[in-house]
Design a binder for these strands. Structure first.
Lengths: 193, 193
DNA sequence: TTCATTTCTTAACTTAAGTGAACGAATTTA
DNA sequence: TAAATTCGTTCACTTAAGTTAAGAAATGAA
């Protein structure tokens, strides 16, 4: 299981055995049950997450309704906004499936970064990379209709459509569950012709 | 004019006179006329932009139609995606107004970063900050209707609504120009009651 | 200034998403 | 296992966005 993390890191920097051990000694790994809430609205947290296996989900509750805005699966990490500015979280993070993840907080970060400066380097590269990806995703979202968004998702992340409940997918696509059902029926109808 | 840049940088790191001079010697400053296209689709570019005065705009041409996805005004910077991966740009960048900006490319970056490592530090912090902001913007977009998006924009960036043509604003809000007109009329109608 | 072009708005019509309700299926939990 | 809850779909109806077209207003160029 640890290998997933090391494989991921090795895309950015190479680690010595010493460094791997230093990482392991931090006791980062957590195994969490489906449905577990990792972060609640209003909560202050310093943790950020990296998914080794499973799926976590970020959602807001607006007017009593859940609005899911992101999913994170294998080899994806999320840094809640509140980590940076020490504010209360505006959203929830919970597990869509039984999930294995690493949980890191800045204290660990500081420790690692002073011992092994290359970690800091990796974080910089990582966040630039994420920023670029995020911008493309946002542009795609803005320039597409819900139907096109769904078809794109079908192409790019077919696994998500299988493993995630429809009503959560719907708000991820910016629509209501009923509209997603209808949209799917419409597409199926078209493909029959 | 240079002060705007230094004011901005001083929010992240403090510069000595030497460092300021090193920056100035790179001849980063450009004054560009309204309508000038800074980056074209299909073009490879290594430049990134920081707006000192004016407004630049990022847009795609999809099925012959312009789709504006972002505006950058005073004290905002943009790094085209193609800078990172050396791909051809998928979008255009042009000036909404006469604009004064700095244009930097990685060669300059390398020079500065080796002379003054703190620049690199700033870039890391900056992109983490941008990433966080970007995520919030994306979440807001996903969880709001076009009308709410417009009202939010009116609150948060009233200047944009004044200085940017309506049809560019429309696609920025994810709708057609006609829908934006109608939506504005609708809001006006409501406020009269 | 005048002419041409672009931009903005309005309108009528079409298409798709939002809403509220109903119902069966799947999943939880007691 | 049985009851309760959650989930996905469908339907009828409402609301809002897309489309096409037309004309007025603003802008830019000759």
């Amino acid at each position: 299981m640890h290998d997933i993390l090391f494989d991921f890191i090795s895309k950015y920097i190479s680690l010595t055995e010493d460094e791997k051990n230093a990482l392991l000694s931090l006791d980062l790994f957590r195994s969490v049950k489906k449905g577990t809430i990792l972060l609640k609205e209003g909560q202050k947290s310093q943790d950020d997450y990296f998914v080794l296996k499973g799926c976590i989900r970020k959602y807001y509750i607006i007017d009593g309704e859940e609005k899911t805005t992101a999913f994170f699966t294998e080899m994806e990490g999320m840094t809640p906004h509140c980590v940076k500015n020490n504010n209360k979280s505006e959203y929830f993070v919970s597990c869509v499936e039984d999930t294995i993840l690493t949980v890191a907080n800045p204290d660990m970060g500081v420790e690692l970064n002073t011992k092994f400066p290359k970690f800091q380097l990796m974080c910089g590269v990582l966040s630039e990379e994420l920023l670029a990806k995020q911008q493309i995703d946002f542009d795609d979202f803005k320039t597409s209709s819900p139907e096109i968004r769904y078809l794109n998702l079908l192409q790019l992340r077919p696994d998500l459509i299988q493993r995630v409940p429809q009503h959560q997918l719907a708000s991820f696509l910016g629509i209501k569950p009923q509209s997603l059902s209808r949209l799917r029926a419409r597409i199926l109808e078209k493909s029959k012709e």
